[in-house]
Design a protein around this nucleic acid. Structure first.
Lengths: 208, 208
DNA sequence: ATTTACATACATTCATGCATGTATGTAAGA
DNA sequence: TCTTACATACATGCATGAATGTATGTAAAT
């Protein structure tokens, strides 16, 4: 086939990523072959091997497309005057936004429920782990600052507060993605759920 | 090969399950072939196909071995005089016990992190889903009873309290299994973590 | 004697990785 | 400006190695 212009090639790369994302979500990562992806994208395996080293590299690229937004803006919350309140708002927004972001839903669903974390994916596990750690550290900073401002319940370890929040959000997203709207409507109940948690760590009653 | 006695056959079946559990945990479900399991167990694929219809059937059997204890005893908590307190103790114990139960850790780890939930596993998903629903209903009963006794914060929906608790426990277990002792020592911090949550839903301060 | 509890053998179906082909974009020289 | 020389962006084909399901063999338990 003919050579394409750089812009077209970039478009092809994006098409491959979009298609992979979709098929991974429908069939699972290990049950989706590169041939499947190529066919669904109207290409051949050659195209995929041109843009990506192998399946793992493709998966990594898929993760990179959504990894950034999470930890970045979180850091800034620690410097605000009401860190705990800001963190609460942020958590509620994260859940509410997730509902409308099909793209993010698919990728998170793949990561949480359509992928096996084993030796072969070792490189991947480490990347995820380091990413989670970065997010945790950011949350920890916010909690620590909130602690210094007396916003946390007395005697509460800021580190454990961050861990607990992380676990709560992870479980909430994980369960909702597994069976959307089964146990709760995330769009409707996000605020109530998050507030249940924050009432557990806040020194003062939450604002209305 | 020679025929074995019924007891020996049952032993073979258990050996297959144990081996599958171990390999699923090490290599992931879809990356573990029946040949792998047979070889590791010192058998052939014929033995597995004798005891189980196919891989999915084997997986189901593995799940059944650990599914019972969860929802069963949970129901009874609703009838106690301090349902919320009993539920809290139960959650703490569940986490603490998990740490020492290698068998349970492996299977939960497989279910949460070494398995892809897709169409092929449809039957499996439904089973999990119905199991989760049963556990949720049990927790909901406890919450409802606690609500009637005035143990829940006023204005708190017992159903959402149950959902939130389920999400919190799921996230805690999931994260700990993914990177044990990375964020927290479950053995040491189980009580603190659970109490963070229960302070969010309880009307009165927790007992020491 | 018949069923049980496996082992063995075979046929079929993917999925992968690589090797090779090929036609075009693109930059530099004349 | 036109050509040349190459790199690019894929397509195609093949060799190889699993993994599965099934069919059949077999020796002991019942």
């Amino acid at each position: 086939m003919a050579r394409k212009t750089k812009a077209e090639a970039e478009q092809t790369r994006t098409l491959i990523l979009d298609t992979a994302e979709k098929l991974f979500h429908e069939q699972g990562v290990s049950h989706t072959s590169l041939a499947d992806i190529a066919q669904a994208a109207g290409l051949t395996r050659g195209a995929i091997y041109w843009h990506f080293q192998d399946k793992l590299d493709l998966f990594n690229a898929m993760h990179e497309r959504i990894a950034m937004p999470f930890s970045e803006t979180l850091e800034k919350l620690a410097t605000l005057e009401d860190p705990l309140g800001a963190l609460r708002i942020r958590c509620i927004e994260d859940l509410e936004n997730l509902v409308d972001d099909e793209h993010l839903c698919r990728v998170l669903s793949v990561i949480l429920h359509k992928c096996e974390y084993v030796a072969e994916m070792g490189q991947l596990c480490e990347r995820f782990d380091s990413h989670v750690c970065k997010v945790m550290e950011a949350k920890e900073k916010v909690m620590y600052h909130a602690h210094q401002l007396g916003q946390l319940r007395r005697g509460l370890d800021p580190h454990l507060a961050a861990v607990a929040l992380h676990n709560f959000m992870l479980g909430t997203i994980s369960d909702w993605l597994f069976a959307p709207e089964r146990h709760c409507s995330l769009r409707r109940d996000a605020r109530v759920l998050v507030d249940i948690f924050f009432r557990g760590i806040a020194a003062a009653p939450l604002p209305d």
